[in-house]
């Protein structure tokens, strides 16, 4: 276990010096500063930052993690020639990658948001952003161990991003119209859980009081997401979105020929 964290520490300190990570953090910081300064209403700025959280975080997290995995291939081989287990090496790479992306998020978006908001909304923003980064990193690692060559891996990851960010909502829209004669509360709740990006968006939307627009259903959702239980639910599902791809990739990686 200590070997794993030692390894994680060294890989982490490598990744945070990476140009892409520095640029990623810088971009977020710039966007946050610009929005909070130009937009007189901080709520509106937060909404724009939410778009960054929902689009940029998954995209960068997934692509960066995939590329990082392929670029580390020889190093991983070298490590595995040492008396280290495959799980240790894989998890070290995963945690180092996810934690540096999270660090970039906290420094870039998290701190400016915390300077303007100190409520549950800000906490929810940080929590979901962090968990979403973890989930996207896990999904990317899963795609990377599945596909042997880099181009294919990046292709899969881009498709997955496109699916979660756009296609999935189209499917939701179709489902909601197809079954509009039935009570849809539970179904809608379930549908949000099946997409980490949607879940993040909805948990933020309902905290921003959009629920009133939804009539009584919205009140139901708000009661759910707005409560502590709702935060546990959101956090729990996002955690599952990290855990399940991670378990799957560990199973593949354990018996993979390198």
């Amino acid at each position: 276990m200590t070997a794993m964290w030692t390894l994680t520490r060294y890989i982490f300190s490598d990744i945070i010096r990476n140009k892409v990570i520095v640029l990623y953090a810088g971009f977020q910081l710039l966007a946050a500063l610009l929005l909070f300064n130009l937009e007189e209403n901080p709520d509106k700025a937060l909404l724009s930052l939410l778009n960054i959280e929902l689009i940029v975080i998954p995209l960068i997290s997934m692509i960066f993690s995939t590329i990082h995995y392929y670029n580390s291939y020889e190093f991983i081989e070298m490590l595995l020639a040492q008396p280290l287990g495959r799980r240790q090496v894989f998890l070290s790479e995963f945690f180092a990658c996810a934690l540096s992306l999270v660090l970039a998020f906290i420094l870039g978006l998290g701190i400016p948001v915390l300077l303007h908001f100190q409520d549950m909304l800000a906490f929810n923003f940080l929590l979901t952003g962090t968990l979403l980064t973890f989930a996207c990193t896990a999904i990317a690692f899963c795609a990377a161990v599945l596909a042997r060559d880099k181009a294919r891996g990046i292709g899969i990851v881009l498709l997955l991003w496109f699916y979660f960010a756009l296609v999935y909502d189209g499917i939701v829209l179709m489902i909601l119209f197809t079954f509009s004669d039935y009570p849809l509360e539970r179904l809608t709740l379930l549908l949000t859980a099946l997409n980490p990006i949607d879940l993040t968006r909805v948990s933020m939307m309902l905290r921003m009081d959009v629920s009133a627009l939804m009539g009584y259903t919205g009140a139901l959702f708000k009661e759910f997401f707005g409560s502590f239980r709702g935060m546990l639910y959101t956090g729990g599902i996002l955690f599952l979105w990290t855990l399940l791809p991670l378990i799957l990739s560990l199973r593949i990686f354990r018996n993979k020929d390198l």
Binding site: T6, I15, R17, N18, F75, A81, Q82, P83, G85
Partner: peptide
């Protein structure tokens, strides 16, 4: 995997993390 502590391996192509320093690699190992 403990048996590998008896083996020293030199790969055909060695690639290491870009920003890791040479000294750090030996420290790490």
């Amino acid at each position: 995997f403990q048996y590998r502590s008896a083996i020293g391996y030199m790969p055909q192509i060695g690639r290491y993390p870009d920003h890791m320093k040479v000294g750090q690699l030996f420290d790490l190992l």
